[in-house]
Design a protein around this nucleic acid. Sequence first.
DNA 1: AAACAGTGCAACCGCTCTGAC
DNA 2: TGTCAGAGCGGTTGCACTGTT
Length: 319
Amino acid sequence: MGRTPCCHKNGLKKGPWTPEEDEKLSRYIHAHGAGNWRNLPKNAGLQRCGKSCRLRWTNYLRPDIKRGRVSFEEEETIIQLHSVLGNKWSAIAARLPGRTDNEIKNYWNTHIRKRLLKMGIDPVTHAPRLDLLDLSSLLTSPQLNLPSLLRLQTLLNPEALRLAMTLASTAAAASSDDAQILNSHLLNQTQAAQPLQANQFENTFDQQIPPNIDDNSFQYQPMIQDNLMPGFGYSVPDQVRADFSENSSFQSMNINTNTNTNTNSSNSNSNNNNFNLDSVSLSSSSTINNGGGEDERESFCSNLFKFDIPESLNFDDFM
DNA sequence: AAACAGTGCAACCGCTCTGAC
DNA sequence: TGTCAGAGCGGTTGCACTGTT
């Protein structure tokens, strides 16, 4: 038997709040202050449970609640803090004045999470996940080097490869050569498919790491590491970082993105990372006007999350 | 114009934490 | 130390609104 719901009492109303109820609650709290939520509805003349009143007040009626769109800086902060704190919405909300944990949670689930998934980034770990990546965008990219991509075979799961094959075979952009390569590769992989022992996987994975990849080019890492792309828990090649940084207002955050290309792996884990929780600026140096038009907003979002492959990005860096 | 699908968000649910006794 | 109530938290749901067919 579960706990009896707090509103499971006769006569207690549930569902959306009416303006009259809001008025009653606001007036009572202004007069008597918040607290003692159990007795509050009775004293305020509300047919609601205390919990419902508390939620209504903290998430909606509180005078310091900031309504309106989430600003550019706020979104950056949410992503950055989430990469560190995870789903600690209240902790994240504490660093965004006027925003509630519920609002941030909703914004994450409905906006940011979807965009990260589309980019192939695991919204939980902030690590790149090739099996989540929007393969259609990859396959239509002029930078796509299909044979190189296939060298990632064990990083892609079979379903992703299958999907890639389907997309490649149907996309007009895909040449018949590419489709053939994919097809034969998939066939080979299917035939060779056997359960991997743990050590086999390790060996297989090692073999996938190209000799030219080094600590400064592409790293799967824990969250707080040197060379991290702001907002995402993984590293990218310096050139990509430069391309991204040039066009991104992540510069507005106190994060050192100036990785010294002469820095070798021996010291790359040390002091280049200036990010810490306290460094996240909450000031609105260039806050987008909340009243800005949809186009403006869309532009910002697409710049922030667009996963266009930069001209300068060589796929071989990842292979 | 109607039906349907997708999206966003307020509100709820149930579990956990905390402090008083 | 154990119990209880109040409060806080994260996950989920339901519904209104919007866009598409």
